[in-house]
């Protein structure tokens, strides 16, 4: 399989393991979202994949066209780091040409591509302007162009949407999807869960340097996003509680209640089990969004794989 393979990487700073035994795969043509609260070890993982820092243990492999290499070759990497900028006193085009040159792209080819990309982002008038004259959003577009100008096979985008207006976000989203469709492996890290939900094929969630959850987005929701039933009733002041089906019940205010169902309990089962004299004014069934799962993790309601069972009650209280 073409793409990225990370096997058991570990990094220790001082006495603390910042990244501990992390493994995952990012197949070609797919977008992998690496998520986790601040300080979870995302940047360290990304830097180890990039070869900027060396893992204390574990290995990173990259396969391109059936050829497997140790680490990811510089020429195939496109990188948009979280801490990013541009040489302030330089011109946009000369920066793009310099960075493309480092990737061994001939100058004429690089120039042609740069102009095409700048046009796509509406920046063609700024090609020969100094970076100082760009707005923050414009600079971010230039940084994105710099990361993909050499048509990389492996693209790392660390918080690519931060600071972008909605229109630009959509533009970025489309471009990232296009990258994956063209056969690149995309690794994306973001705090904007709606973006991740909309864009990523696979999710890798880490907390405190360890893997919490990984896999297909739908599968994850299936596994961890237990059904929620919201009820607006008239009668009972006491919340209805079926301990066999409900993991948690809470009063949202007034006569509005939220029930989080236990693993494997279907909403229909729950509704059927409701007392027949219950006067239902509103009823809705939903699943926690990625946002809720993320928040749950960030608040520390996590213990390895089975975090929901152990901690949901605490985390929502």
């Amino acid at each position: 399989m073409d793409g990225l393979q990370v096997r058991g990487i570990r990094k220790v700073y001082g006495s603390a393991a910042v990244v501990d035994n992390v493994s995952f795969e990012a197949p070609q043509g797919r977008i992998l979202g690496v998520l986790g609260p601040n300080g979870a070890g995302k940047t360290t993982i990304i830097r180890m994949i990039m070869g900027i820092t060396a893992p204390d243990q574990g290995e990173v492999f990259f396969t391109n066209g059936g050829v497997k290499t140790n680490g990811v070759p510089f020429s195939t990497i496109g990188y948009l780091p979280e801490e990013r900028g541009l040489y302030k006193e330089a011109k946009v085009m000369s920066i793009l040409l310099f960075l493309a040159g480092l990737k061994d792209i001939p100058k004429t080819v690089a120039k042609e591509r740069a102009l095409a990309q700048l046009r796509k982002f509406g920046l063609e008038d700024y090609a020969y302007k100094k970076v100082e004259q760009l707005s923050k959003g414009m600079a971010q577009k230039v940084q994105f162009i710099a990361a993909v100008l050499h048509e990389p096979k492996f693209v790392v985008l660390d918080e690519p949407f931060s600071g972008l207006d909605p229109v630009s976000q959509d533009l970025f989203k489309a471009e990232i999807r296009a990258l994956a469709n063209s056969g690149a492996t995309v690794l994306l890290s973001s705090h904007q869960m709606n973006m991740v939900e909309a864009l990523c094929d696979e999710i890798f969630l880490i907390h405190k340097g360890k893997k919490v959850v990984s896999g297909n987005l739908e599968d994850i929701k299936e596994r961890f996003g237990n059904f929620r039933v919201d009820l607006l009733t008239r009668a009972p002041q006491e919340p209805f509680l079926n301990t066999q089906m409900v993991a948690q019940a809470e009063q949202l205010g007034g006569e509005r209640f939220r029930y989080t169902l236990k693993d494997g309990v279907q909403p229909l089962e729950f509704v059927q089990a409701l007392p027949s004299n219950l006067e239902i004014r509103e009823l809705s069934v939903s699943r926690p969004s990625l946002h809720d799962i993320f928040v749950n993790i960030a608040q520390g309601g996590v213990s390895d794989e089975g975090y929901m069972e152990n901690s949901t009650l605490g985390a929502y209280a």
Binding site: M50, I52, F74, I77, Y79, L80, E83, G85, A146, V156
Partner: peptide
């Protein structure tokens, strides 16, 4: 300057 302009990481994805 490389640090101030936040270019170090990008350049380091191309050279050691």
């Amino acid at each position: 300057q490389e640090k101030r302009d936040r270019m170090a990481e990008v350049v380091l994805s191309s050279v050691t």
